[in-house]
Design a protein around this nucleic acid. Structure first.
Lengths: 202, 202
DNA sequence: GTCTATATTGCGATAGAC
DNA sequence: GTCTATCGCAATATAGAC
């Protein structure tokens, strides 16, 4: 296995960076956890920053893919597209359980290498939601008095907040721990949101 | 002015810790920005950690106060109480524009001194929302098929996410910059949420 | 591709003068 | 209460042997 070291390093770094943040993790800590040599970080990633960048890119990769898939279905109604998007959110968090750690960490305390990566990905998300809400209003499904930007932020907030709050809230309340609590939450939250923005109800 | 140094240190530390996170800020950086001497941090706060703790306590102070005030109005309806809470959220963010930075930063990457402070404050918030939602269901205002924990997380998420996303989203979309955009957002988001959880509508 | 050994820099904290 | 000077340590990075 030639690039085993590289993979092990990515794996360990993903967990440690997610848990403690970039600045709080030392290269020694990483190499001890990965049971490899210090110099491997420079050898494979050209330093700690390069390793972090690689982790971040790998973590965020499902986002653009997902938005692309949802946008292919632009023949369906805006409401169906938003529903599809919500389902994909649950899917992303199941695929990358630590993704929200990285995103929020970068949004609150941006690093110079992380900021452009995050920006590239999240702008795609906002543009999709913005356009879909506009179309929903134009077609009469969604209330006209919505401020689109606020409504877009509301949607991202209500769908994603759970995943950041989860380890914290589960200390206070016993949270459902079964396999698909992610999609259960997302379905629940999206129902509240959709109910809240729709013009009328069937 | 005897404790001017202390105040200046709190002020500068609040901004730098909010912007870069605890681990990424050095004591030298703080003392240069505050135009004071390195040793003042140990003298006043017994080190960098003590300074961070002091900043955190001061930042979070409006939370418990707010929850206390809202709970005094327990004679009004649960819906009115939730509305009051939403208004207080806007108020808190206006008072402490950086509070969400500290909270999210501690939730994603907890420090050993910050974690107990955050936990103490946020558990109060969740307990209040949980109890109020329960009462709203019992009195028939709110849909019975809500999962209370999910609905509580949804409320916190939809109300607060904006304040973390704001500096980021405003790069993508021009956000309203007028004096009271905080309460405008909160009112907007809360309307979506309330609309989404209510049993019927007047 | 992996190792040891080390260079270099910056960190947080404090002793002791004023 | 504020300063300078410095201690001791841990950080990242890399040169060079294997």
């Amino acid at each position: 296995m030639e690039n085993n070291t590289r993979l092990k390093l990515i794996e360990v770094a993903t967990e440690l960076f997610a848990l403690k943040g970039f600045a709080a993790v030392s290269v020694r800590e990483l190499t001890v956890a990965a049971q490899i040599n210090v110099s491997a970080i420079s050898y494979y990633f050209n330093g700690k920053e390069g390793l972090y960048e690689a982790v971040l890119i790998e973590q965020l990769s499902p986002i653009l893919q997902t938005i692309g898939e949802v946008q292919k279905n632009d023949s369906t109604s805006p409401v169906a597209q938003l529903t599809l998007y919500a389902n994909q959110i649950a899917h992303i968090h199941a695929l990358r359980p630590l993704i929200s750690r990285f995103i929020y960490s970068e949004v609150t305390n941006p690093t110079e290498y992380g900021a452009p990566i995050i920006e590239k990905h999240l702008s795609q998300v906002y543009q999709f939601i913005d356009a879909t809400l506009r179309e929903g209003i134009a077609r009469g499904y969604i209330r006209e008095d919505l401020n689109i930007t606020y409504a877009a932020v509301s949607l991202v907030g209500i769908l994603n907040f759970y995943f950041i709050a989860k380890p914290f809230v589960s200390k206070l309340f016993p949270l459902p721990e079964h396999a698909d609590s992610e999609s259960e939450y997302v379905a629940h939250a999206f129902r509240i949101y959709l109910h809240g923005i729709m013009n009328s109800e069937a």
